[in-house]
Simulated assay, not measured.
Amino acid sequence: MQGRVLIIAGSDSGGGAGIQADLKSCMALDAYAGTAITALTAQDTLGVHGVHPVPLDFIRQQIQLYLADIGADAIKTGMLADTPTIAAVCDALAAFGSGQPLVADPVMMAKGGHALLEAGAVDTLRRRLLPLAAVITPNAPEAELLAGRPVRSVEDMPGAAAAILALGVPAVLLKGGHLPGETVVDLLATRDGSERFESPRVESAHTHGTGCTLASAIAAGLAQRMSLRDAVIRGRAYVLAALRTAPGLGRGHGPLNHAVTVDPARIATLA
């Protein structure tokens, strides 16, 4: 096991997204992950049915204790919910962090349509969190809100990515899974240029947690001293494999197969 990741995000009681997906993704890619939970959600594959925020002092305490004891080689943020939570997390990272690369997944809405970020907190996300990030991983709807411009096609992606870079983040991975077409295009843009990554669309209802999974996979790669480009390439390959082998659980948007990298036959030889 190599690389320590601190994940700051909400819990998904259904296990497909949030902290649960983050932990499974890091472990599947041979990284160690600890958590600072920002919110508890009651959800299943049909949607989010309840949200219980975690007290701000307790969020800060989780961050402080993990960084002071185990330490982190990379940090990943997910659901931060509102302005006070974003501020508390940013303050804690400023006080206790040591310059670890931060992968910021700007979680704004659950797969079923439930809002996971207050509308008034988008500006706080722009001002406080983005300048701390090494890379931000918005999907097309999230990129629209952050960039203040439409992202309705692959052609819209470069302009939106440039607008997000102008907010102070050094790199953005703009994900195209929400856009139409048989091919999914993701755009990795930095201040030095951009690169497109393409993969065939997997037609499936079992796509819950793809964003959390990819961001955590990238964080694991950065914690393992991979370049950002290599971490993105490996992370996309992992998500694609997890999508193709999804277990088909639930009556709605089901989870991925986060254990796709695990080889039971090999494990049996170690017993």
Rank of each mutant, 00 (worst) to 15 (best):
M108Y: 03
M157Q: 06
E155P: 11
L117S: 04
A223C: 11
T124Y: 09
L173M: 00
D123M: 14
T210E: 06
V202M: 06
L188Y: 11
I218W: 08
I136E: 08
P170W: 09
G252Q: 10
A121H: 02
M108K: 03
T245Y: 02
E144I: 08
E203L: 07
A205P: 13
G176M: 14
K175E: 03
Q224E: 05
A241W: 11
L174W: 07
R229K: 14
A121M: 04
T213A: 07
G120V: 11
H208R: 09
S199W: 12
P200Y: 08
S216C: 14
G209M: 07
L145K: 09
V122C: 13
S227I: 11
L165N: 03
R191C: 12
H178K: 11
G252Y: 00
L129W: 06
Y238E: 09
P150T: 01
A161E: 03
G177H: 03
P138I: 15
L240C: 12
A220K: 06
R229G: 04
H208E: 00
L125K: 13
S216H: 07
P141H: 10
A219G: 05
T124N: 13
A217K: 11
G177S: 09
A143E: 06
R251S: 14
E203Q: 11
M157P: 15
R196Y: 15
A189W: 13
L188I: 06
E142Q: 08
L173N: 00
A217G: 13
R251I: 14
A219E: 10
G176Q: 11
G120P: 07
R149W: 14
H208V: 05
T210C: 11
G159D: 05
L228Q: 05
T124S: 15
M226L: 13
V185S: 14
R236V: 09
A215S: 03
S204N: 08
P150A: 04
I218H: 04
A215K: 02
V169P: 07
I164D: 00
V154L: 05
G193L: 12
R127Q: 15
S153H: 07
G252H: 04
G209Y: 03
T245N: 00
A220P: 04
A140W: 06
E182K: 14
A205F: 15
G209D: 02
H208T: 03
E182A: 09
E118A: 14
A205Y: 15
M109R: 15
P158H: 08
C212F: 09
V202A: 02
G168H: 03
G148I: 04
L132T: 05
R126A: 12
